[in-house]
Design a protein around this nucleic acid. Structure first.
Length: 484
RNA sequence: GGCGCCAUGGUGUAAUUGGUUAACACGCCGCCCUCUCAAGGCGGAGAGUUCGGGUUCGAUCCCCGAUGGCGCUACCA
């Protein structure tokens, strides 16, 4: 690695648009981004869409959306491999010309058949290298005759290929274990093995930070670097993210695309913070802290903090990060996120901006998700809300209560000033006068005012709602059907 | 099957790189607070570091083996 690699590294995130941005990919992107930002390097986005069958534009958009939701900005790209095919073909031909690759005329069907045979006999299902023997003249003739051919890499017969992984240390593979892999398919489309190194080289990448599922592909790529006489980048393989059952995270574990978490009401910074700490740690100096802003993360991030073992995705921990972030957010910063939820839920806030901000401040300490603001917290932002049947059953079951609440409302209507402490005094005096427990009145009022059994301190709620609304809602409990 | 990688409470991570009763967070349980639910405060359970051998005065840490998990094993990426 050259000095310039350290002073201004170039890294990339290279997803293939065969699915949405999933959490594993998002974390790989995050680590690349943090690494680049930490060192003042360049973060490149490259879309690996050489599998035309499975790639789609919709998925490309989904990946871009996921990236921007997480705040992962890229400096170059997005580049599309589908638009760079000539580069790969040129490199494949160069490899043929230098004797590092050869034309293979075996058809897909033949290969499959031989693989099946090998498996039946218990032999390793590697390509038998039969086209390696072909003399150039014959290859040339068959190609001229229009016979389809792929280009395969000529893997050295003996020895081994190794590298010093920034995460895993020295990793070594015997060349005998590596088959003569296909570089260029017979239709002229490159395989992953070719296009990654062609692009990583062309884009002058200094560090390849990617999932550990690529470890066994790495020697195939290193062999190409060597054949080309090109310097090796630093490889850093990141452990995988597992589901609760410790198998690789997949759809059957539930949400797997990052946008699904957005839709669950997760705040992007919470998700980013959570993701950063999955398989990476800032080290003992920061071991007692877990809430890190992106600036913190950028400042602390280093490859040597990446763990070697796979990590289990823990929804509870993510939920905790989410509550922490929602609570810490300024209500003004929270508002646009909440407005998005309202729009999605078809809810219209009918109160003034100041009232809305005050209500957010009151509610955010007990929000688990942004969704709460468009669901159970509706009553604070408008008059269109529903009564939770369980809450009604729990605190409004006493048939005498509605009339009492209505009367309490008239007391409130009569006082000159409506304050938190004043409202409490009135309620408690009223309870004493009627010979009932204040708690019954308080709990009943809460349901009457918010539709919920759970809410912040009742008198704070009252002040936030404003006297008129309080009086009106206490009165309407007597007629629950006109609650809307 | 072959090859590669990994292994600290249920989960995520620490442990001055061989040196105390293995720490922190999430989750769980209990108590306090209290008008509900969170939050907060206090306390608790939960690992002797997958197992078995070594090396060493001493191993979470080094070595060997076993086991388990994961990854790769395509003209997918």
């Amino acid at each position: 690695m050259s000095d310039s690699a350290l002073s201004s590294p170039r890294v990339r995130f290279a997803p293939s648009p065969t699915g949405y941005l999933h959490v594993g990919g998002a974390r790989t992107a995050l680590f690349n981004w943090l690494f680049a930002r930490h060192l003042g390097g360049t973060f490149i986005l490259r879309i690996e869409d050489t599998d035309f069958e499975r790639s789609s534009e919709e998925m490309v958009q989904g990946i871009l959306d996921g990236m921007s939701w997480l705040g992962l900005s890229w400096d170059e790209g997005p580049f599309f491999q589908s638009q760079r095919l000539s580069l790969y073909r040129r490199m494949a031909e160069q490899l043929v010309a230098s004797g590092h690759a050869y034309y293979c005329f075996c058809t897909k069907e033949e290969l499959e058949q031989r693989r099946a045979q090998a498996a039946a006999v218990g032999r390793p299902p590697m390509y038998d290298r039969r086209c390696r023997q072909l003399v150039p003249a014959e290859s040339q003739m068959r190609r001229a005759a229009g016979e389809a051919s792929a280009i395969r890499f000529r893997v050295p017969d003996g020895g081994s290929t190794s590298w010093d992984d920034a995460v895993f240390g020295r990793v070594e593979f015997a060349n005998a274990e590596i088959e003569d892999f296909v570089l260029l398919r017979s239709d002229g489309v490159p395989t992953y093995h070719l296009s990654v190194v062609a692009d990583d080289l062309d884009m002058r990448l200094t560090h390849i930070i990617r999932g550990a599922d690529h470890i066994s592909n790495t020697p195939k790529q290193i062999l190409q670097y060597r054949a080309l006489g090109a310097p090796l980048p630093v490889f850093a393989h990141v452990p995988l993210i597992l589901g609760p059952d410790k198998t690789r995270l997949s759809k059957r574990h539930g949400a797997t695309s990052v946008m699904a978490y957005k839709e669950m009401g997760i705040v992007p910074e919470a998700f980013r913070n959570f993701l950063a700490l999955l398989g990476w740690s800032p080290g003992p100096a920061h071991k007692d802290r877990e809430i890190f802003s992106s600036e913190d993360l950028i400042q602390m991030f280093a490859l040597d903090g990446i763990s070697k073992s796979n990590a289990v995705f823990d929804n509870d921990k993510l939920a905790w990060f989410n509550t922490e972030y929602i609570r810490a957010y300024d209500s003004a910063k929270l508002l646009p996120l909440i407005e998005t939820e309202w729009r999605a839920a078809g809810f219209q806030a009918t109160r003034s901006p100041q009232e809305i901000l005050a209500a957010i401040d009151l509610l955010k300490p007990r929000a688990r998700s942004l969704k709460d603001f468009a669901g159970p917290f509706r009553a604070y932002f408008g008059d269109c809300f529903e009564f939770d049947p369980a809450a009604v059953a729990k605190f409004l079951a006493d048939p005498a209560l509605p009339a009492l609440l209505c009367e309490l409302g008239t007391r409130y209507a009569a006082v000159p000033e409506f304050t938190e402490s004043g409202a409490e005094e009135i309620l408690r005096a009223f309870a004493a006068e009627k010979g009932i427990k204040a708690g019954a009145l308080i709990n009943g009022s809460r349901v009457a005012l918010t539709g919920q059994a759970v809410a912040p301190s009742l008198f704070a709620v009252m002040v936030t709602l404003g006297r008129d609304r309080v009086v009106q809602r206490l009165a309407t409990v007597a007629h629950p059907q006109s609650s809307g």
